[in-house]
Every structure is written in C-alpha cells, then in structure tokens.
C-alpha cells in the first residue's frame, strides 16, 4: 500500500481489483463548468468497469433539479444525461439529505431516482471508498 494521494494507483498487487470510486458533485449546474466536467469524467469512468457511485452534496443537488430549460442562456441542458447513467451501469446515486433540505428541495424535485442519505450514512459511504474525486 502507498499513501493515498487521491489519485488512481495501479500497483501490481492491486491491479485488476475493482476499486470503489466516488464522484462528489458540489456545484450548481451552469454557473461554473465543474458540474458538466464532472459528469463527463463519470461517463468516461464507466469504461473502466469499476465500482462507481455519485454523491450530490451542497449546490451539487441543483444538478438534478428537473424542469431545467436552458434555451434562454444558450447553454446545453445536460440534466437529461443523468438519466443515461443507468445505461452506463452507474446506478448508485446518493443525495445528501441536509443539502436538499437547506435548499427547499425534496426527492420529488429531482430528475432521477436517488437514495437520500443522512450525514452519518454519507460519511460512512465516503470513508469506505478507495478513491474520492470531488467537483
């Protein structure tokens, strides 16, 4: 084992083992490029057959709000792409309950089925990952 750098380490003894990757989404969809770039990385990660999960925390929960219509700002609406994740075998989508509540949102406002987690559940899940990548 080496010190975790948050990067992807492929050592001989661990190569081939499926690792647990979590992508943590913490930004609103259009104000910065993070949300879209994060989603692209997630789609690419699907090609490596790893154990991928997505967490939506803080303003990241806004990425999943349904009814987004971006014609007026002339930017691509990428919210439907979250519905494609199932076809990429990425089915573990977790949303932080506290972040939802702080923003006056409920599961009903979201475009995809998710699992809403308490602080403790989210913390446990994060701690159980091999690699956590945050956007």
């Amino acid at each position: 084992m080496t010190e975790s750098t948050g990067g992807i380490e492929v050592e001989e003894e661990t190569a081939g083992r499926v690792k647990k990757f979590m992508f943590v989404n913490r930004k609103a969809p259009y104000g910065t490029i993070y949300a879209l770039e994060g989603l692209e990385v997630v789609l690419i990660s699907a090609a490596f057959d790893q154990d991928v999960s997505l967490a939506f925390v803080d303003d990241g929960v806004y990425e999943l709000v349904k009814g987004q219509a971006t014609k007026g700002i002339d930017v691509k609406n990428f919210s439907p792409t979250y519905r494609a994740l199932e076809g990429y075998d990425i089915e573990k989508l977790y949303v932080d309950a506290e972040s939802l509540k702080a923003r006056g949102l409920t599961e009903e406002n979201l475009i995809v089925p998710v699992e809403v987690l308490s602080n403790e559940e989210m913390a446990d899940l994060m701690a159980a990952q091999d690699v956590v990548i945050s956007f």
Partner: peptide
C-alpha cells in the same frame, strides 16, 4: 433574471 431561473428549473420554487 428569467432565462437563468428557467435554465435551473426553479421557476416553480
């Protein structure tokens, strides 16, 4: 600004 409101899907909120 309504185009920004609509883009983010928060018109009803």
């Amino acid at each position: 600004l309504s185009p920004d409101v609509e883009a983010r899907g928060v018109n009803n909120l």
